[in-house]
Simulated assay, not measured.
Amino acid sequence: MSVSSISTMALARQTRNLVRTMQSDMHTLELEIGTGKKSDVAGSVGSRAALLLDLRNARQTTAEYRQSIQTQSSRLTLMQEALDKVRGSATQVRDLALSVSGSGVGAAAATIDEAALNAIQTLSSMFNSSQSGRYLFAGTRFDTRPMQPPTETAPSGIAPLDAVKSVLSSLGPTSTAADVDAALNGPNGLSSIFSDTYGGGPAAPENFSKTFFLGSTTQVQGRAGEDLPVTYACTAGDEPVRTLLKGLYLLAAVPSESVSTEAYQRIADQGWRLITQATDELIDTQGIIGLQEELLKRADERHEVEDGLLSKQITQMEMADPYETGLRLNTLETQLEATFAMTSRISKLSLIDFL
């Protein structure tokens, strides 16, 4: 036995489910019109879903590079500012040394050792600059404070200024210009400290890498793009910094009244020459850092363009067509109205009207 008719209750349920489906579809289309995006992106792009995923990943990578560029640019700016202050402080001592080198006496000679020590303290502060817990001039040992303050005892057991004074005093009296040259450049002289050759090798506690500088001379490298390395082109252990400290420590460790006028003239002259050489070399270093800053700027501009292109492609794939969506919405609205009208007419039918 077959039943070819549907009960009134079943028909009502079927109509109700149909209405719910149409209302849900209308709500989805209204959201598409409101947001401008397809509700089912994966379903709508079909076989191009892999391409859409690649585009999104590429845009995420671009955003990460741009964030990294901002951080790196900030670090390089801080390095430039620190080097400006280093050169400014050193220049003041250099000018004092130049004025003293002609006479070896006078008010400048009486204060130059204190001025040199103050400059070293400024250098220590600047070369210990950090950002977000990373020391900028420590090379790859960026978690270690690189520059030891002049009067603070280092892990080697001696303070930098004491190491210089100890080495100079061990070389005997300094009375003539020749004595000064020997103390500076002779065996186990001051220069040997800053070349890590004092006492036969770098293991001696007086040496630069044991007492003065605790970082690494290996420069940190970052990235501004897949094939765009960025180098932090300065550490507190580089040669210009060693030369600068050599000149400043020479002036800070030997008061003018402790040696003859001839000897102090030579000390002031050598200090002036070393500081002048170092500040000129630091200008070159800042020029290299400036090139890295320009590289970052150009890379960020390129990434900005790439981000715009990727965003446009993604939007085109995810964007809902407002005309098509509106047409579908109107069609559903018409169907829903027809369903409501038919339901209303059926509900008004009565057998009595046909008897």
Rank of each mutant, 00 (worst) to 15 (best):
T243I: 09
L244P: 03
L244D: 04
L245H: 01
L245Q: 11
K246A: 06
K246V: 00
L248K: 04
Y249V: 03
Y249K: 05
L250V: 06
L250E: 05
L251F: 02
L251N: 06
L251W: 01
L251V: 10
A252W: 04
A252I: 08
A252T: 10
A252H: 01
A252S: 12
A252Y: 03
A253M: 13
A253W: 02
A253C: 12
V254F: 01
V254C: 03
V254L: 09
P255N: 06
P255G: 09
P255Y: 05
P255E: 05
S256H: 05
E257P: 00
S258P: 02
S260Q: 10
E262N: 04
A263L: 01
Y264G: 05
Q265K: 12
R266D: 04
R266N: 09
R266W: 07
R266I: 03
I267S: 07
A268W: 03
A268I: 08
A268C: 08
D269V: 04
D269E: 10
D269S: 12
Q270E: 10
Q270V: 05
Q270M: 00
Q270F: 03
Q270G: 01
Q270A: 04
G271W: 13
G271M: 08
G271D: 09
G271K: 12
G271R: 08
W272Y: 15
W272Q: 14
W272A: 15
W272L: 08
R273S: 09
R273Y: 00
I275N: 11
T276H: 09
T276L: 07
T276K: 07
T276E: 13
Q277K: 06
Q277V: 03
Q277R: 06
Q277P: 09
A278S: 12
A278M: 01
A278Q: 02
A278E: 00
A278R: 02
T279F: 07
T279Y: 10
T279L: 14
D280M: 10
E281G: 00
L282K: 09
L282R: 11
I283A: 15
I283S: 15
I283N: 15
D284S: 13
T285A: 06
T285G: 05
Q286L: 06
Q286R: 15
Q286E: 15
Q286M: 15
I288E: 00
I289D: 00
G290N: 02
G290K: 00
G290A: 04
Q292P: 01
Q292F: 05
E293F: 01
E293C: 01
E294T: 14
E294P: 04
E294Y: 11
L295G: 05
L295T: 15
L295I: 12
L295H: 14
L295K: 15
L295Y: 08
L296I: 14
L296M: 15
L296N: 13
K297Q: 12
K297C: 11
R298N: 12
R298K: 12
R298D: 13
R298T: 13
A299H: 02
A299K: 00
A299T: 04
D300N: 15
D300Q: 12
E301V: 10
R302N: 11
R302T: 13
H303K: 04
H303Q: 12
H303Y: 04
E304M: 06
E304G: 11
V305L: 07
E306N: 14
E306H: 08
E306L: 13
E306K: 10
D307N: 13
D307C: 05
G308C: 08
G308M: 08
G308T: 11
L309T: 02
L309C: 01
L309G: 02
L309S: 02
L310D: 07
S311L: 03
S311K: 14
